[in-house]
Design a protein around this nucleic acid. Structure first.
Lengths: 204, 204
DNA sequence: TACGGATTTAACCAGATAGTTAAATTTTTT
DNA sequence: AAAAAATTTAACTATCTGGTTAAATCCGTA
C-alpha cells in the first residue's frame, strides 16, 4: 500500500513543482502536471482533490527550500561580519541550485499575499532575533549604524534580485548569452560579500 | 470623430493598465477591463482587436514608465559619485510613484522574455555607454574596481527589489503594517545612496 | 436632414480547463 | 484466492473566457 503510493505521490510532487515553478498557479494546467508525472488526470485528482490543494502543498515545499535556516549562522559565536559573509554564501548556494525560485515566489506572493503570511505563521518564523543580532553589532560598533531592517533588505536584495531579473539582465548586459549570465551569477557570491562588507565596515 | 475616440481609447488604456498591473496577462479578464473603462466588451474589441494586442500596448507604456531616461544624468559633466546619487534619486522617485511596476514587469518578463527583448530592440537601448561611464570612473580611480555590470546590477537590485518583494517585507519586517512599509520605502532613497557610496568610494 | 462612425445590446460560438464519475483493470495486501 | 487499494479509460459536466456578430441606437457633422 505504501511503496506504490509514496512513489506516485512523489512523482506528482516533483512534476507539479516543475510545472508550477515554470508556469505559475495561473499558467499551470492539471493535464500538464499529470503528463509530466506520467499518470492521468483522474489519478491526479485522486491524490490531490483540487489544483489549489496541490498548489498549496507545492508552495510550502518551495518556500521551505527558498528560506534555508540561517539561525545557526546568525546566532553562532563568530564576529558579525563573518555571519554576514556566511549568510550570503548560504543564500547564494541555494539560489544557484534553484535559480527560478525567486521569480516564482515573487509572482505568487504578489498574486496572493496570504499564501506567504499563512506559511510564516505555520513556520512560526520571527524576524526580531535576526534584527536584534544586527542592531547589537551596531551597538558594539562593529558596523555602521542604520535601521537593521534596511541592512537585512539590502543583503537580500543584492542576493535575490539578479535571479528574479535574470531574463532582463541576460539580455541587456550579456546580449542574451546564457553562459555569460551563469558566470555572472556565479560571481555574485564574492561580489555581494565584498560590496556589503565595504558598505558596513567602519572606515577610519 | 476624434474628441470622442481619443477619450475612449484613453479610458481603455488607463483601465487596462490598472487591471493588467494588478492581475497580470494571465489573470486579467477582458470583461474586467471593459467594466473598469465603463464600456462593454464589444467596444473593447472594436478598439483593440485582441487581448494580446491590448497587452502589448500597455506593456510598452509601462516599460517606458519604469525605465526613465537617465542618459542626461550619466553622460553629464558631474563627478561619477554625483551621477550615482542622481540616478538612484531618479529611479526611486519613479518607483515611489508606481510601486507595483517591478512586480508586474518581473512577472511578465519571466512569462515571456521576448516581450522585453522586442521592446529593447524597438527602443534601441544600448547598455554599453552606461557600462563605459562606470569603468571610466574606475580607471580614473574615483571608485573601487569591479565588473561594471555588477555595480549596475547592485544599484538596481537595491532600488527595485524592496518594491517587488513588498508583501513579504511588509509582513515579515513590519507585521503587515502598510504605513510602516511606506515609511520604509521612502527611506530607501537615502539608505541606498549611502550604502552604495560607502561600498564604492576608495577608503584611505 | 442624411450620413457615418461610435456605442450598446444581447446573444452566441468555440475552445480550454477544472473537476467528476463509473466501470474496468491492474497491483498489492491479507 | 479473495479483498482492498491503486490506476486507467473515457466520457461527461459545468464554467469560464476570448472573441464574434448583427441589429439597433446614439451623435456629431456635412
Amino acid at each position: 500500500m505504501n511503496i506504490q503510493k509514496d512513489n506516485t505521490e512523489d512523482k506528482i510532487i516533483e512534476a507539479a513543482k516543475e510545472v508550477f515553478i515554470k508556469k505559475g498557479m495561473d499558467g499551470a494546467r492539471m493535464q500538464e502536471i499529470a503528463d509530466e508525472a506520467g499518470i492521468n488526470k483522474a489519478l491526479l485528482h485522486y491524490y490531490f482533490r483540487s489544483k489549489e490543494n496541490l498548489f498549496d502543498a507545492i508552495f510550502e515545499r518551495v518556500v521551505r527550500m527558498a528560506f534555508p535556516t540561517i539561525s545557526q549562522i546568525l546566532f553562532s559565536d563568530i564576529p558579525f561580519l563573518a555571519k554576514v559573509e556566511s549568510a550570503i554564501d548560504t543564500y547564494l548556494d541555494v539560489l544557484m541550485k534553484h535559480p527560478y525560485l525567486p521569480a516564482f515566489i515573487l509572482k505568487e506572493i504578489n498574486r496572493d499575499a496570504s499564501l506567504f503570511i499563512n506559511l510564516i505563521k505555520k513556520f512560526g518564523f520571527d524576524p526580531q532575533p535576526v534584527l536584534k543580532v544586527i542592531s547589537d553589532a551596531m551597538d558594539r560598533g562593529e558596523i555602521v549604524r542604520m535601521k537593521p531592517e534596511h541592512l537585512m533588505v539590502n543583503v537580500i536584495s543584492l542576493s535575490v534580485f539578479p535571479f528574479a531579473a535574470r531574463p532582463i539582465i541576460r539580455y541587456v548586459a550579456f546580449d542574451g548569452d546564457e553562459k555569460a549570465m551563469k558566470v555572472f551569477l556565479a560571481e555574485r557570491k564574492q561580489v555581494v560579500k565584498e560590496f556589503v562588507l565595504r558598505a558596513i565596515v567602519i572606515s577610519h
